[in-house]
């Protein structure tokens, strides 16, 4: 059981949690995740560690499925039933030069710790964060503190740059030399970023979100195809070379339980 020390909304349905987890806090590195369970009979879900401090880690959660919805009802003083980690291979951090960090929606929260680490390693960091509209653009201040430039974007033009993060990215890469791109967000966004940087030859990293069960390499459910090879996101990733990832396959595999989820939603709506 891990106590929640602080909880507040960052956006409608997106909540910030500071959770007591001293051992994980000591060990975790940028890019790693934890597996969380919130209810008896509940699923195990992976959540990227957004930040950490003395005795605590931060998790940022968007309520989309049953477990994340339940999680987002919790407040300070409540407990997470289970928390295991840190898991996954940490982000590769080095002095690359200029690094562009692209965050889409709640993906911005996953990108934040790597942006911080990239800045600490001496990189020039440009952050591009996007969402469908103004209230969903998150962590602008936090990324601002660690970036040389922050470009908020909104699909509907209600805030910052009007358009997709990929449009902004194309603008940035046209203006200066970019040595590395990290893109985290919805699958179509990550796939589009890979196509922007491919012709420019910019090494591009994405953090993938396949369906996981145990998160420790035991089940193989999170396998993704990278460079024609099958890799386990939980122990080989979650970060991979964007230009090698088969995003179509990932998108398809993530629909495996759509029907089940649909009927569960109907069931809980009518009960």
């Amino acid at each position: 059981m891990n106590r929640i020390l602080e909880a507040h909304l960052l956006a409608p349905d997106i909540k910030y949690f500071r959770v007591e987890a001293p051992k994980v806090a000591r060990k975790r590195q940028a890019g790693q995740f934890v597996i969380v369970r919130v209810a008896e009979d509940g699923e195990r879900i992976p959540l990227t560690i957004a930040d950490s401090g003395d005795g605590w880690i931060a998790l940022i959660v968007q309520g989309v499925g049953k477990t994340t919805t339940l999680l987002n009802r919790l407040e300070a003083g409540d407990h997470l039933l289970d928390l295991a980690g840190p898991l996954g291979v940490p982000s590769e951090i080095a002095r690359f030069g200029t690094v562009v960090v692209v965050g889409g929606g709640v993906g911005t929260a996953i990108a934040l710790p790597t942006a911080v680490a990239m800045k600490q390693a001496g990189n020039r960091v440009i952050s591009i964060i996007g969402a469908r509209s103004r209230p969903y653009v998150i962590l602008e201040e936090e990324l601002g503190a660690t970036s040389d430039e922050v470009h908020p974007c909104s699909d509907d033009g209600s805030y910052g740059f009007a358009g997709f993060v990929t449009d902004k990215l194309a603008e940035v890469t046209a203006g200066e030399t970019v040595d590395r791109v990290l893109a985290i967000g919805p699958i179509p966004m990550m796939a589009a970023v890979a196509e922007v940087t491919r012709p420019l030859g910019i090494p591009t990293i994405v953090s993938l979100n396949p369906i996981m069960v145990d998160g420790t390499g035991m089940c193989g459910g999170c396998r993704v195809r990278v460079g024609g090879e099958s890799r386990f996101a939980c122990v080989d990733g979650p970060e991979f070379d964007a230009q090698q990832v088969d995003f179509d396959l990932l998108a398809k595999r993530n629909t495996a339980y759509e029907a089940w989820e649909h009927f569960r939603r109907l069931e809980s709506a009518t009960s």
Binding site: K23, V24, K27, I35, D82, L83, A84, G85, P86, L87, T216
Partner: peptide, 10 residues
């Protein structure tokens, strides 16, 4: 101790 992924946690 459950949820203790030795190798990663310690």
């Amino acid at each position: 101790e459950t949820n203790a992924v030795i190798g990663m946690l310690e």
